[in-house]
Design a protein around this nucleic acid. Structure first.
Length: 423
RNA sequence: GGAGAAGUACCCAAGUGGCUGAAGGGUCUGCACUCGAAAUGCAGUAGGUCGGCUAAACCGGCGCGAGGGUUCAAAUCCCUCCUUCUCCGCCA
């Protein structure tokens, strides 16, 4: 959520920044805000009067004075207050609604662009391997090895679901354990295991609601709960409505979770394999940072995600997203893309964002500054560290052999109980 | 699922309609006493948020789990919801 004061004072600037993300307009908002403040002054004056007189009434009563006239006046005043309060409330609801549907402003330094074709590659790591045989796609490799079973997943549930069997299931678990253990090494990130269903407030806190309700699986029946689209939601909301001790910042969390997404609007894209499913596993890394250091933290967080790929020796590149390709809540985003031989290109495997105070305002996550004693919003950041299904796919494809077998990356062998090849 | 009980500030806790921004403890901080500490005494320890163009000061509104309602006036009465606890049932 954007700061209404910032909009009030720097409307032009905010408007211009929002235009970089899409077609947004704040003129209506500014008008409503103006009306709101006018009304507040009026109502509060009346309330002050009411409070003043209310203190006198018991005194007069004790003095046996006749208060019936005052009571009648107060009744009128009370009715006026109630009426104005109702108007104020609906005005504030309207303002809130608009604010919730406005995206974050991009960091002014982020490149202005329309879509992913305008993104800049800022880093490349590793060399895509040259194959002297025809590469297979991961869904063929996995199916042939008997470690992936898409047909049965479709039978059990439906399209865009996957199933890992035997060594495949073990490899998935090994990937998760490997990632968590790297992130929690030396207590760097604190591991949390959260609920996988969250309430409406949590989904609103991180920015999925109200605008993107169609993308989320809702748990129907009598409960207003949603299956999490990412662990970002429960983990960021961990500190919702809290005032953190400034000396504890930055706070680092990592969490494994399954993720559930409707993938509305992506019909026909990535229909095969592990790339785009309704349910996938992910290890997420989340930070709560002091505003002054959030951009340093962003670089470090991205590096932490990259480290996983480096340890797995998977070639990747880092892309800085342009304003038009960034998500709703983000101020700046790096995507990490892993080399996927069957695609012949890099495929997103992690998205690392600095949300500045946008989510913190929505979720009301604050800290007390140890120097000034003042309360202020934290900055929140998160990134995939990494998407497990896509990592699984990347391993199969990059580590495949001519005979259809797959080598286990060195750093995973330990987590596979010493297994070096899947065949 | 059934039956009860409770939610007041950092913690414990008093408070059934009006000078209650909320008794009393504890905690912590400062000061005094002390060579120092303990003990003791004194003082402070709601914060947050919204508005008054901005900031400090100041003024005002809101605030006793959340949201409604009754009333001139609500922590206090009524309703709905949430959470926690106890007992029963069920269950990994």
């Amino acid at each position: 959520m954007l700061d209404i004061k910032r909009i009030r004072e720097n409307g032009e600037e905010v408007n211009e920044l929002l235009k970089r993300k899409g077609d947004y307009d704040i003129s209506k908002l500014m008008e409503l805000d103006e009306n709101r403040r006018k009304l507040i002054s009026e109502v509060e004056e009346k309330k002050a009067e009411q409070n003043r007189v209310s203190k006198l009434i018991p005194v007069y009563k004790k003095e046996k004075k006749d208060v019936s006239e005052i009571l009648a006046e107060m009744k009128t005043l009370s009715e006026e207050i109630k009426k104005s309060d109702d108007v104020l409330k609906s005005l504030e609801a309207e303002i809130k609604q608009i604010l919730l549907e406005l995206p974050n402003t991009p960091n002014p330094d982020v490149k202005i662009g329309k879509d992913d074709s305008d993104n800049d590659e800022i880093k490349k790591w590793g060399e895509p391997r040259q194959f002297d045989f025809e590469v297979k796609a991961h869904w063929d490799i996995g199916t042939d090895l008997g470690i992936l079973d898409f047909e049965r997943a479709a039978k059990i549930t439906g399209a865009r679901f996957s199933m890992f069997t035997g060594i495949g299931a073990k490899l998935e678990r090994a990937i998760i354990n490997f990632m968590l253990s790297v992130h929690t090494d030396e207590g760097k990130y604190t591991e949390v295991s959260t609920p996988f269903m969250v309430n409406r407030d949590s989904m609103t806190g991180t920015g999925q609601l109200p605008k993107f309700e169609d993308d989320a699986f809702k748990v129907i029946e009598d409960r207003d709960l949603f299956l999490i689209p990412t662990a970002e939601v429960p983990v960021t909301n961990l500190h919702r409505d809290e005032i953190l001790d400034g000396s504890e910042l930055p706070i680092y969390y990592t969490a494994y979770s399954p993720c559930f997404r409707k993938e509305a609007g992506s019909a026909g894209r990535d229909t095969r394999g592990l790339i785009r499913n309704h349910q996938f596993d992910k290890v997420e890394i989340v930070k709560f940072s002091h505003p002054d250091t959030s951009y340093d933290e962003h670089e470090k967080l991205t590096a932490d995600a990259e480290k996983i790929l480096q340890l797995l020796k998977l070639p990747y590149r880092v892309v800085e997203l342009c304003t038009g390709d960034m998500t709703f809540s983000s101020a700046k985003t790096y995507d990490i893309e892993v080399w996927m031989p069957s695609y012949g290109r890099y495929v997103e495997i992690s998205s690392c964002s600095n949300f500045e105070d946008y989510q913190a305002r929505r979720a009301n996550i604050r800290f007390r500054d140890k120097d000034t004693g003042k309360v202020n919003f934290v900055h929140t950041l998160n990134g995939s560290g990494l998407a497990v299904g896509r990592t699984f796919a990347a391993i199969l494809e990059n580590y495949q052999n001519a005979d259809g077998s797959v080598n286990i990356p060195e750093s995973l062998v330990h987590f596979m109980g010493g297994l070096e090849v899947i065949k």
